[in-house]
Design a binder for these strands. Structure first.
Lengths: 178, 178
DNA sequence: GAGATTACGTCAGCCATGTTGACTTATTTC
DNA sequence: GAAATAAGTCAACATGGCTGACGTAATCTC
């Protein structure tokens, strides 16, 4: 391999110091976010592997556990994936007895999603693992700092999505903090 | 489909209120983290699509841009993926002229990674998009609150990884805050 | 009551990005 | 000179996204 060394080289590094601090790239937060998320999902991934499940199953199980009677359409809107993608993982969760679908009483087209006892156990075990990590990370934070973390995460979310997320998580509604 | 309604139903919801608040599941933070990350990567994903690139390319480009002369082994350790996975993505970035590899001077086995002018431009454009989102989210936060966010993200990371991340991001070193 | 719409499911095929395992080449280290 | 290291590559496979096209049952609307 003779052409490994290319004549085209990287220009000298630009100084990180831009005039306006708001315009200086937030490299630190960007990278921390990447590393934090990478490790955040790891606990659950390992636990899920025992069941032959993946991250996609976790998400479905989690939101169904937290929102019993959830409609399929609502779940699609939460996860922002297609019906076909959801279909696969949902079928597996139903087949393995973690989720059941109950016909809607008012609207019999609906297949309202509920976890089984088994599904509830797994969902809570996964939540426990992630809670342990979150609790440790917030252990040294005061109430105000913990609230600052929640607010930061909330405001990273697309503005049009916030009302929905607030309703789901119990976070304060958007714009309600002035 | 006659067996939609299963006899197995979900048990009555357990109250969220556990005795010890540290043991109560941190559903809010868990869910906010999921939604925040989902939207955080979206800006860049859209920009990358124009080049036929994906998230994997972004990660490589980002860390090479930030760490000129990075060794392949180091990059693998940062991304926590296999050599084969990286290989594909890296080859594409090299082929399209975003990254060049330079033989190490001290150790000629090394293929030190550098971005090209073009790679630098794209990396910075992507960083700009994510910085915009981060800046908005931190706009109402004070210095102490912004620091609380960084600390939270840092402490979500696996303890054994923190020293490395601190070195990369310039975050304060682990345990250095007492 | 007929027709449009909605809720849900499914078949088929494709793509991006991860994995394991085996092996090669060049170079450095001991 | 042998062993270890840095990097690359081939092949095969899994997961979880996607699009497009359809089907069925139920509800809504006029």
């Amino acid at each position: 391999m003779a052409d490994v060394i290319s004549p085209e080289v990287r220009p000298a590094r630009k100084a990180d110091a831009a005039p306006d601090p708001a315009q200086r790239p937030a490299f630190d937060v960007i990278e921390l976010f990447f590393f934090a998320y990478r490790d955040f999902v790891r606990d659950a991934d390992e636990a899920l592997a025992k069941y032959g499940f993946g991250r996609a199953h976790h998400r479905v199980l989690h939101f169904v556990d937290r929102n019993p009677g959830l409609r399929v359409t609502e779940l699609l809107d939460i996860l922002k994936i297609t019906k076909q993608s959801l279909g696969r993982v949902l079928r597996e969760l139903v087949d393995e007895g973690f989720i059941v679908q109950k016909e809607g009483e008012a609207d019999r087209r609906q297949r309202l999603l509920h976890v089984t006892e088994r599904g509830d156990r797994l969902a809570r075990e996964l939540a426990r693992l992630q809670t342990r990590r979150v609790s440790r990370a917030l252990a040294t934070a005061g109430a105000q700092e913990a609230e600052a973390v929640r607010r930061f995460l909330f405001e990273i979310i697309d503005p049009e999505e916030r009302a929905k997320v607030a309703a789901l998580t119990g976070a304060r509604p958007p714009k309600a903090r002035e």
